[in-house]
Amino acid sequence: MSAEKNRFLFVVSTGANEPKKAFTPFYYAAAAAAMGYETYLFFVAEGPSLLKRESLQSVRTTEDGEPLQKVVDLALKNGVKFLVCSVAAKVIWKMGEDELPPGAQFAGASTLIEMTADPSTAVLYF
């Protein structure tokens, strides 16, 4: 019998170089949290680049659209927890802890593996 899903994990590997894809994981994670699921966004590879200060203001889906900051704030307001691959963030994107949004934490590969192995977790990949 499969376990009831009560946690959503959104793995985000696309980054600021693909602005049209940038908003979707934050919006869907905000939806899952608004529906009462424990919800995480896990940023790997290009993903942490979305959280850089300049990306939050400059990434938009259209020229006159809202900045990425808007959906990041929406996700945080709804209680989505942000986990950021420490290797990608620190080595590739040269980000320190002070550059993460409030409440976001660095995490390692073992955290992601452990979470995805939990049968109560639904995993979506962006």
Partner: peptide, 11 residues
């Protein structure tokens, strides 16, 4: 309920 608009998503 969960409320969804083009610019908002929340409980």
């Amino acid at each position: 309920a969960t409320v969804e608009s083009a610019k908002y998503m929340g409980p």
